[in-house]
Design a protein around this nucleic acid. Sequence first.
DNA 1: ATGGTCGGTCCCCGA
Length: 262
Amino acid sequence: MITIATWNVNSIRTRMHAVTKWLTDASPDVVCLQEIKSTSENFPFMEIEALGYNVEILGQKSYNGVAILSKRPFDEISERGLPGDDSDEQARYIEAVISGDKRPFRVASIYLPNGNPAPGPKYDYKLAWMDRLMAHAQGLLKHEEALVLAGDYNVIPEAKDVYAPSEWLTEALYMPTTRKKFQEFLGIGLTEAFAQMDGRAGQYTFWDYQRGAWQNNEGIRIDHLILSPQAADNIVDLKIHKMTRDGIKPSDHVPVVGTFDF
DNA sequence: ATGGTCGGTCCCCGA
């Protein structure tokens, strides 16, 4: 079995104690991190490697930044940056191929743009980025292999995934245009792991730091594992690690962890 | 209608 997790850590250096504890407790095989907010020069490679992980990152100063950690060696880092726009300098996509006991699998760490305020240039960038992701995923699906597109999608798929849907109708994460494009993306032949494995209302992955959102369970579900048919056929468990939202200096996101018979 | 909270960096921006 291979466990694959996604976690937006909101700064790797500030979060190192929480990340170290969770890696030790949960011991996932593969971890996709987002918002590391770090360049390669400042990334804590040694501390994470000491826990038994190979580490590959696409970083930038101050904002964004993604990483993949893997207990198994990487066969290949197949992409650094999302193809489709050479002028895009934001570090939001890294992709690797890793071998399981039964089959190789491809995994991507994705930090999809937030898009607020909408409408506006940031929302236009979000929609264009989703178009590029869809085009790239269509190419990957032709390989007919196990593929896990893991990350912070900044998309609330349905009303049941947000504590107060009516308050989010003008937010870039929940606007009808956003949800429609996300469904279009799934429609190319992908499966959202949570929808397949659980699907219950009120299962959130993010709670804002403000207004006591965590204490009042005012959350949203925006961190997703998106699967090719070969991955969807082999997922055996999916869990949201809510426990990490407690404690000292938590991230505002929690890990989503899938178990696969790879 | 407003203010509320984080993180990174440089005196404000993004979420």
